[in-house]
């Protein structure tokens, strides 16, 4: 009897929390679809012709992929250095945990000052890189920590240099994680609108900043929802490409 009642309680708990979590995370997105596809248009003067959208999408993609790539490469370099050099490892871990604990939006201000003399696209790329860095660093560092220590020690005792150790053993071991981290960072960066607005001084409008403008300045929910759907579409294409890359890498690895 006690067993049955505990099973019932558990089921109720699961239905309540699961339903709440799913409703909380998924319900908002139905508004995106309803607003974007079915609500009546509201003329706001917000330019949405094909050419404008293409420019916005291309710039958004560039300003997401470039900093994500930069962050992934630097996180791989930093994690490799951290695995070989103890003082740097201590510093690096503390740095990315601190920045991760406090939302990197606070770096926006510092970077607005630091980068205000650079061309706006370059400034936004560099600022986005720094914001993405802890997000990418965490999984890559975890993958480095889990790299087979015996293999690294064996390679070292057989005379491999530090560079060879990193190139031939560490990087292949963390490759898939690095690709996944790159994908996650790119998706995250696709939705940035504060950095293009503040660091780029509004000279680099992206899909994110266009959504911000449509909602907060023009009150045009339909246009914003359509741009949001475009952004999600871009994200899906990007994720598909990254998944294909991971699959091809796994196939090549198996063939070898």
């Amino acid at each position: 009897m006690r067993f049955v009642s505990s099973r019932v309680w558990l089921t109720v708990l699961y239905l309540a929390t699961g339903g709440f979590v799913l409703a909380g995370t998924m319900a908002p997105f139905t508004f995106l679809v309803v607003d974007g596809l079915f609500s009546p248009a509201r003329p706001s003067g917000f330019g949405q012709d094909g050419a404008t959208l293409l420019v916005l999408a291309r710039r958004s993609l560039f300003l997401a992929v470039a900093p994500a790539m930069l962050a992934t490469l630097l996180a791989m370099a930093a994690s490799s250095l951290a695995s070989l050099y103890a003082p740097f490892r201590t510093f690096y871990r503390r740095w990315f945990y601190t920045v991760l604990f406090t939302n990197p939006v606070f770096l926006v201000l510092g970077m607005t000052v630091l980068l205000n003399r650079l061309p706006s696209e370059l400034a936004v790329t560099l600022a986005s890189w720094l914001v993405l860095m802890p997000l990418v660093a965490l999984p890559i560092q975890a993958a480095v920590d889990q790299a087979p220590a015996t293999e690294l020690l064996a390679a070292r005792s057989l005379g491999a240099s530090s560079a060879e150790l990193v190139r031939l053993h560490l990087i292949p071991a963390i490759g898939s994680t690095a690709i996944a981290a790159f994908g996650l960072a790119t998706v995250f960066a696709l939705g940035f609108y504060l950095l293009p607005t503040f660091v780029g001084y509004g000279h680099t409008p992206t899909l994110g900043s266009a959504i911000d403008a449509a909602v907060n300045r023009l009150g045009d929910n339909k246009a914003a929802a359509q741009l949001g759907i475009l952004l999600v579409g871009l994200e899906v294409c990007l994720c598909a490409a990254i998944l294909m890359l991971v699959a091809v890498r796994a196939m090549l690895h198996r063939a070898r």
């Binding site: 508004f31 995250f188 899909l207 909602v215 949001g228």
Partner: peptide, 17 residues
Amino acid sequence: TVLLFPPVVVALSATRL
């Protein structure tokens, strides 16, 4: 799931909800 979407899309959807 909420982390899988670009933050601005989450913001827009949450606003409407």
